[in-house]
């Protein structure tokens, strides 16, 4: 997991950007670009428009550098500009995306299969009736192989876009929950719910995978 950059590093980075340092700029582009493109794509109609939005957002960033005060982290501040740019463009395209289409419409449902637990009224109500497959203690070379990463990447790709982005920012890139709430314009509760659903599905995909390789 990437170490979060500390605010003093952010201020130093902003100084470099103000001075026109291309290496510093491209480092940020490489770090944030893939997520920015996906987030922009949530609000606009095509990949081409999303690329355009990302470019417009970066221009907003460099032009607005004097306004960066270091209260939020730099990456959060950049994402705020991106999200606002993307939403404005989406409105101009007359594209309204229901929040549920981004987050998934099952957020009030249990994340775990209810049939794994005793039904209400039974003596074992709410307790495990079928335990999930125990994949702890998988040999390290198996658990950490490229196949495992492929399973995780595939499971994330199947998630509704906002769930996918929350888990990428939090667990792949190591952002804090505050940063993610701010960056993606989510309430704390929504962020937590989205992250938990995403982790549950990735855990489930790993369980399936390790079960099938252990039976093979």
């Amino acid at each position: 997991m990437a170490e979060p950059r500390k605010p003093p590093d952010d201020l130093a980075l902003v100084e470099l950007l103000r001075a026109g340092d291309e290496t510093a700029f491209m480092m940020l582009v490489d770090e944030l670009g893939p997520s920015m493109r996906r987030v922009a794509r949530m609000y606009v109609s095509s990949d081409a428009v999303a690329d355009d939005v990302v470019q417009e957002a970066w221009l907003g960033v460099v032009k607005g550098l004097d306004g960066f005060e270091g209260r939020a982290s730099l990456r959060t501040w950049i994402f705020r500009i991106l999200v606002n740019t993307a939403k404005t463009r989406g409105q101009r395209e007359n594209r309204s995306v229901p929040f549920a289409a981004l987050t998934g419409d099952d957020l009030d449902q249990p994340t775990f299969e209810p049939s794994a637990f005793g039904a209400p009224g039974e003596p074992n109500a709410g307790g495990w009736s079928t335990l999930p497959f125990d994949w702890r203690g998988m040999p390290e070379e198996r658990a950490e192989g490229t196949e495992t990463l492929h399973v995780i990447g595939g499971a994330i790709a199947m998630l509704p876009p906002m769930q996918a982005e929350v888990i990428r920012l939090r667990d792949v890139l190591g952002w804090t929950s505050d940063e993610v709430c701010n960056a993606l314009d989510l309430t704390e509760t929504n962020q937590r719910v989205l992250l938990h659903r995403a982790r549950t599905k990735v855990r489930g995909a790993l369980e399936e995978h390790f079960r099938s390789v252990s039976e093979a």
């Binding site: 999930p132 950490e144 667990d171 855990r203 790993l206």
Partner: peptide, 15 residues
């Protein structure tokens, strides 16, 4: 423990 491991393994995804 599997949640912990899921989070740890996710951190290994390539940039």
């Amino acid at each position: 423990e599997e949640f912990r491991e899921t989070i740890r393994l996710s951190g290994g995804l390539t940039v």
